[in-house]
Simulated assay, not measured.
Amino acid sequence: MRTSCHDQGDESRRLSYTQRREFEFDRGGVPFDGTLVQPPVEDLDSRQTEKYRNLIGAASVQKMLEARDLVSRADKLTVAAWMLFAERPQSLFPSAHVRVLQYSGSERGVGARMNLLEGRDIRCEGSIPEQIEKASHTIAQWMPRVEALAPDGKFRSRPIIPHDAWLEGLVNAVLHRSYSMAGDHIRVEIFANRVEIESPGRFPGLVDPNNPLKISRYARNPRIVRVCSDLGISRELGEGIRRIFEEMRAKGLTDPVYQQSSGSVRLVLSSANALPQEVLNKLPKQAVGVLDAMRLENRPLGTGEIVSLTGLTRPTVLRHLRRLQDTGIIIWEGQSQSDPRASWRLL
């Protein structure tokens, strides 16, 4: 059997056939979503193709498919066309679906100790837009909620993970998963204290998952991404990971964690506070509001900018900033008290 090796830093590891094929798709040439499938154009779901045809103003379904490189010159459909517009793409790609599970605690458990809740294991099938819609509806319904202090000073119910954070993670998983890796599907696992989203396929090349904010824009499935951008499901801006971080930080939660195995990437979104609870308990409500404003901006800010963001008076903002500084959460950087470029920065 033919094998090959792939350099990883100072290491070389032997690649399996599946891994070698993935590496070749990622390295260049025709992406997997541009390869061809056997079903004819007539087998696509006319309801979905007509909706998209009208959206982009194509004269016909054929013209629409040609405009997005979803069909070959010989009128053969691409994988992308089938995944996006077939009534049930799983007839050719059985593992191309999203599985949503919910557990009763913070661990999966095994055997008789399995913590999976009854009726909380569903598979969301259909076209890619339908999978995302079904899965997001289910996740929103099943997401645990907590009572938390709102900006108006009242306790209100909120999901443990911000909606936009897990939704961005779900969309990224569906759009960028490896559809050439048969036998595995996307899993969204909901626990009492976190959400985990795992999808087949590694990050491209030698990307370091420990530094996800430095991952450059990459589309494993460019045809799928383009159509989903037209549909308003995603944006071709390469900002998905950054947006997840911003949503988590805005709510004062710990940063997202990416874990990469030999054949998949897992995103972990934890409901744990970025600061220890004993520290939060000592901070005035308005000080936490100042901290949240700085997290949301995620850049060094001048005192005047923080005043504008929070709506508090300058003396009040300064008092809270010094309190946060004493706690070791932020730092002041400047040459002197009158330095116009002085700023406050999160540690």
Rank of each mutant, 00 (worst) to 15 (best):
P129T: 04
L321S: 04
G9P: 00
S336K: 04
R13L: 15
R53K: 14
G328S: 05
H185L: 05
G105M: 08
S270D: 12
G183K: 08
S127T: 08
A135K: 05
G119H: 09
L296N: 13
Q48D: 07
M83Q: 14
R13N: 05
Y103E: 06
V61A: 11
C124V: 06
S127Q: 08
P94E: 13
N172S: 13
R266P: 00
T327I: 00
A182R: 14
L291N: 01
V265G: 01
N193F: 09
E297P: 00
S180Q: 10
S216Q: 10
E87P: 02
M64D: 12
L92Q: 05
W82I: 07
C5K: 13
V268M: 10
G111T: 10
D152V: 01
T35C: 08
Y218D: 06
K76E: 14
R226S: 08
S95L: 02
L324H: 02
I190M: 06
A80L: 09
K214Y: 11
I215K: 06
V100C: 07
K63S: 13
P89F: 12
V265L: 14
L77A: 07
K76N: 13
Y218H: 13
E168H: 12
E198L: 05
G126V: 14
E11L: 15
F85P: 02
I244H: 03
D7R: 10
P340C: 07
V227M: 09
R202V: 13
L324M: 07
E239M: 13
E42R: 15
F23Y: 14
R202Q: 13
D184C: 04
I122M: 08
S271R: 04
E130L: 08
T35S: 10
A287I: 05
R187A: 09
V195C: 06
L77F: 15
V110P: 00
N172K: 04
D10A: 11
Y103H: 13
K285V: 15
T3R: 11
G240M: 07
E130H: 11
T3G: 12
L149R: 11
S178C: 09
R13Q: 12
S127K: 01
D230K: 01
C124T: 08
G205T: 14
I306G: 00
G9T: 02
S157W: 02
V257T: 09
P151Q: 12
L275D: 05
M64T: 08
L231S: 01
Q102P: 03
H176I: 00
L213A: 14
A342R: 08
A274I: 08
G334Y: 04
Y103G: 03
S12D: 13
C124K: 01
L237E: 15
V288S: 01
S136Y: 02
I241D: 06
P39A: 05
A173F: 03
R156C: 10
G302L: 02
K251M: 11
R68H: 14
I186K: 01
M143K: 05
F93Q: 07
L36S: 03
D326Q: 15
I190W: 04
R322W: 04
D75H: 10
H97C: 13
S262C: 02
S4W: 05
T316N: 08
E118L: 10
G29I: 03
V61L: 13
L280C: 13
R145V: 11
R108V: 09
S261H: 03
N273Y: 12
